[in-house]
């Protein structure tokens, strides 16, 4: 039922070399994941090329967030194989960053949240203000992070993820509660990150956003990849009935 155009996805693109070639491509075979006895992912296969931005789409509860956590090495699958280059996810967690759907911020100032990560990674503290400036939070540097609005918290979580200088960046609905101009800011940051060779994998429900920033779309349904196509084709001519129904607003899990 999957119609993955692997050849098109693996075709070399006009992007700089990924900084560490051994992390990609990603290869997932027969991935199964059960949560509390309920199977969520059932035999999922996925191949991701070394470059660009991939959008993961699918209805609520399809397992998108769980898939990101498996790929990032935070969850161990029930069965199946996940390989970053030749390495298992847990071995490469430190080279990746994940912006969670619900950001967890430390009980400190906005600036201290960034400082914490920079220090943990042995990076110079001077990078902080530039990071905060990029997400438009420099003027809030002294504010307690837990007092930020939902959108500001998401932007801080993104800045913190970038502070780890990741090779792969996972975004779990990172723009879900942002106003249009903040969405634009974040999308620009993500596109910049891609251009710098960071592999971006983002979960989104926003078709417009996927169109704007994604090179390819992975559509998750029924515990598997129902469709994996280049973004333009996914939106102009979705191949799978599930994706067609989802884009028409008819699909419920």
């Amino acid at each position: 039922m999957s119609s993955i155009d692997t050849a098109a996805l693996l075709r070399p693109q006009a992007l700089p070399e990924a900084r560490y070639a051994n992390l990609l491509p990603l290869r997932v075979r027969g991935l199964e994941l059960s949560c509390g006895g309920t199977p969520i992912l059932t035999g999922l296969n996925l191949d991701l090329s070394p470059h660009g931005c991939t959008a993961i789409m699918g209805p609520n509860g399809a397992g998108k967030s769980l898939l990101l956590k498996v790929l990032h090495g935070l969850l161990t699958p029930t069965a199946g194989e996940v390989c970053w280059g030749s390495q298992p996810p847990a071995a490469v967690t430190a080279r990746q960053a994940l912006v969670f759907q619900k950001p967890v911020l430390l009980r400190r100032s906005v600036a201290a949240n960034i400082d914490f990560v920079l220090k943990a990674r042995g990076k110079p503290r001077q990078a902080r203000d530039a990071l905060l400036d990029r997400v438009g939070l420099l003027h809030k540097a002294r504010a307690p992070a837990r007092r930020l609005s939902g959108g500001e918290a998401q932007r801080l979580a993104l800045a913190r993820a970038l502070a780890t200088d990741p090779e792969v960046l996972f975004l779990d609905e990172a723009t879900a509660s942002l106003d249009p101009s903040s969405v634009q800011v974040i999308e620009t940051i993500v596109q910049d990150a891609c251009a710098r060779g960071i592999r971006v994998i983002c979960v989104t429900h926003d078709s417009g956003q996927a169109r704007r920033i994604a090179d390819d779309v992975v559509f998750l349904h029924g515990g598997r990849v129902a469709e994996h196509s280049p973004a333009d084709r996914f939106f102009s001519a979705p191949q799978s009935p599930a994706a067609r129904a989802y884009l028409d607003g008819r699909l419920v899990l």
């Binding site: 956590k69 935070l74 967690t93 967890v104 430390l106 990560v117």
Partner: peptide, 24 residues
């Protein structure tokens, strides 16, 4: 319980985790 997943994502050492928890 609240921080664990975020901390694992950041690959903190045990010492870094303890000191961050004590401070927070």
């Amino acid at each position: 319980g609240e921080y664990a997943e975020q901390f694992r994502s950041l690959c903190l050492t045990r010492g870094q985790t303890v000191s961050a928890l004590l401070w927070d």
